[in-house]
Amino acid sequence: MNRLKDARTGKTLKRIEREIGRAYLDKPRLSQIENGKLNPVPGDIPAFLAAYGAEEVTELWDASDLDYGVKRPRSERKPDRNKKTGRIHIRTSQKIAKRFHAIRKRYGYHTGEQCFIAALDALEQEKKRTAPTAGTVETAGVSRSPQSNDSPSIGQGGQNVNDSSAISKPI
C-alpha cells in the first residue's frame, strides 16, 4: 500500500506534476499511481521523494509495492559456481539473425540455446550418415576400400589416380 495521498499534504496533483517534471506523468497517471493502480518507473522515484517531501522510499511505498520482479544486472550477480557454462558470440548480418529467430520460433524453440543445440545435433547426425564406412580411406577425392584391387579409380578432373602417390593404403 502506498502512502502518497497522505504525504501530499495540501499540494494539488498539478503542483506535484510540475515538481516531478516528467512530461509523461500527467494528472491522470499520477492519480493512478497514488491509488496504487500503477507503479512509478524506478528512475522517477527520487523525483517522487522530492515532490512529496519524503527522505526514504519506505515513507511512500511498502517494499512489496515496488517489487518489479527484475533481477540485478548480470555484472552485479554472484557467479553460479555450480554451472559450467561457456559463451559463444556470433556476429552476423541482420538478415541471418532474423532468419535464425524465425526458424527458432517456427519450430517451437523457446531460447536460442535450444535451437543451437538442435542444430548441432542435426549436424552430427548428418555427418554420421554421410561419413565413409570403416576401413575406407579417402585420398585425392577417391574413396576406395583397402580390400579392393579392381579397376583404376577416377579422381577429380577425370584423371587416373593409380599412380604411386595417390594409391589408397590400408589403415
Rank of each mutant, 00 (worst) to 15 (best):
Leu30Thr: 02
Gln159Val: 10
Ala166Glu: 04
Gln32Ile: 01
Ile88Trp: 06
Tyr68Phe: 15
Lys169Ile: 08
Arg15Asn: 06
Ala102Met: 04
Arg91Val: 04
Asp62Pro: 00
Arg91Tyr: 02
Cys115Glu: 10
Thr12His: 08
Ile33Ser: 01
Gly69Leu: 03
Cys115Trp: 07
Glu19His: 06
Gly108Glu: 04
Gly112His: 03
Ser75Phe: 05
Ala63Arg: 14
Ile33Tyr: 00
Leu30Ala: 05
Asn39Ile: 03
Ala97Gln: 13
Arg129His: 14
Arg129Tyr: 09
His101Phe: 09
Thr136Gln: 14
Ala47Cys: 05
Ala47Met: 03
Gly43Thr: 09
Val137Phe: 02
Asn82Trp: 10
Ile88Met: 09
Asp6Ala: 11
Pro28Lys: 08
Gly141Val: 09
Thr58Arg: 10
Pro46Asn: 00
Asp44Trp: 01
Lys78Glu: 08
Ala54Glu: 00
Ala97Phe: 15
Lys128Met: 15
Lys98Met: 03
Trp61Ser: 00
Ala122Asp: 05
Ala63Asp: 13
Lys71Ser: 15
Ala7His: 01
Lys98Pro: 00
Ala131Lys: 15
Pro170Tyr: 07
Pro170Lys: 12
Pro146Ile: 00
Thr130Asn: 05
Arg74Trp: 01
Arg129Ala: 15
Gln159Trp: 05
Glu59Ala: 09
Pro152Arg: 11
Thr111Asn: 10
Lys83Ala: 14
Phe116Thr: 12
Ile16Arg: 00
Gly53Met: 10
Asp6Cys: 00
Asp163Cys: 15
Ile171Tyr: 10
Arg87Trp: 07
Asn162Glu: 13
Asn35Thr: 09
Arg8Phe: 10
Thr92Tyr: 02
Lys95Ser: 07
Ala166Pro: 02
Arg74Lys: 08
Asn35Ser: 13
Ile33Trp: 01
Ala118Lys: 09
Ser75Cys: 03
Glu76Ala: 13
Ser64Leu: 08
Asp26Lys: 12
Thr130Asp: 12
Gln147Arg: 12
Thr12Asp: 10
Asp65Cys: 03
Ala118Arg: 01
Ser165Ile: 02
Asp26Leu: 00
Arg144Gln: 14
Leu38Phe: 07
Gln125Asn: 09
Leu120Lys: 02
Glu19Thr: 02
Ala140Asn: 14
Thr136Arg: 12
Cys115Ala: 15
Arg72Trp: 06
Ser64Asp: 12
Thr12Val: 06
Arg77Asp: 07
Ile45Ser: 03
Glu19Arg: 03
Lys27Pro: 01
Pro42Asn: 05
His89Lys: 07
Asp65Gln: 04
Lys128Cys: 09
Tyr68Ser: 14
Ser168His: 03
Val70Gly: 11
Ala131Tyr: 05
Glu56Asn: 13
Gly158His: 09
Leu4Ile: 11
His89Pro: 02
Glu138Thr: 09
Ile33Met: 03
Lys84Tyr: 08
Glu138Cys: 11
Gly157Pro: 02
Lys169Met: 07
Gly135Met: 14
Thr139Ala: 13
Arg15His: 11
Glu56Trp: 04
Arg104Ala: 05
Ala7Thr: 04
Ser148Trp: 15
Asp65Met: 04
Ala54His: 03
Leu60Gln: 04
Ile171Pro: 03
Asp26Phe: 01
Lys14Gly: 06
Ile117Val: 14
Pro79Phe: 04
Asn149Cys: 10
His110Thr: 14
Val41Ala: 12
Asp163Arg: 12
Arg77Phe: 02
Arg77Val: 12
Gly155Gln: 05
Ala23Gln: 08
Thr139Lys: 14
Asp150Tyr: 11
